[in-house]
Design a protein around this nucleic acid. Structure first.
Lengths: 155, 155
DNA sequence: ATCAAAATCACCCGAAAGTATGAAGGAAAA
DNA sequence: TTTTCCTTCATACTTTCGGGTGATTTTGAT
């Protein structure tokens, strides 16, 4: 298949070549200008064949492929990365929004920062965090972080 | 750099072109055969420029870069999951006592509870925690917990 | 359509946390 | 022996947190 195709290309090239030679002859026979503007004629020929050469190169030569091998080191954590225990979350009755707040608390944000991030008022965040503490049975946000991580409620 | 290289190629091509034209002129001037064997001469020119075209195509065409990324799996030894980075502690200039306080903060204790546990005054704990925040470049204890865990300063 | 849970917000007040500054005793390093 | 750092403590002040209570609006499920 590949050889066949290649031969086709060569054939095509040969035909093109022949046609160009014919064209040359024709020009030679019909134009007297040829003799007076020989260099121009030669220039045209040169450009024509150069283009042909370029085209040929593109057609016949298999695309130059530069294979660049990059070794990418992938670190694989052996330990099961402690998936979030949705069951525990349900069991404690912690809502989606509360979990969001809990996450941000664990990230170290203040209530005010959380409020701004979630586009709610400070009071709302306080309400949420209070109910979180109630459900987690803790008194402070730091305790909440500790317990939530221990229970795999957050990362 | 890439552009520079490309311009070099173009320049080289131009020079080759000029030299060929010169060759042409020289041939034209010194060989009377030219007139008698015009077609042969043209054929030579054709072949010459075709070769030039092929060469040009080879030179100018940017190689198709095929980046093959080989993923090399590296298993992290997690049998001893994240030891405390004493080097990091030293680098941050965190003292023994401060680390103790930091541990208790991460455990969810209040400053008062920490004071009682370490048999020091509340003010002392505050001083320690303040200097911890300064050294960790954080503003709140929750942030300190997050950063300390991230830097493997505490468990 | 109705009912319950979830989410939103407000106000007050006290507690806890954090800042700033200063200071004193002790241990280790220069 | 100085000097530096650690540890301790204090006072005063500001900010943030958390509790309590109540209320409205959404939303989801029956």
């Amino acid at each position: 298949m590949q050889l066949n195709e290649k031969y086709k290309e060569v054939l095509l090239y040969g035909i093109s070549m022949a046609m160009l030679v014919l064209l040359l002859k024709w020009l030679e026979a019909h134009f007297i200008i040829l003799n007076y503007r020989l260099d121009l004629f030669i220039g045209v020929i040169a450009i024509l064949f150069m283009v042909l050469g370029i085209w040929l190169a593109f057609k016949l030569v298999k695309p130059k492929v530069e294979t660049r091998i990059i070794e990418k080191e992938i670190y694989i954590d052996n330990t099961v990365p402690k998936e979030i225990d949705t069951n525990e979350i349900k069991k404690l009755g912690i809502s989606k929004r509360e979990l969001e707040v809990l996450d941000l608390i664990a990230a170290g944000l203040s209530n005010d920062e959380i409020a701004k991030k979630l586009f709610v008022s400070l009071n709302t965040v306080k309400t949420h965090s209070s109910s979180i503490f109630l459900k987690l049975d803790v008194k402070r946000r730091t305790q909440a972080i500790e317990k939530a991580k221990r229970l795999n409620i957050i990362h």
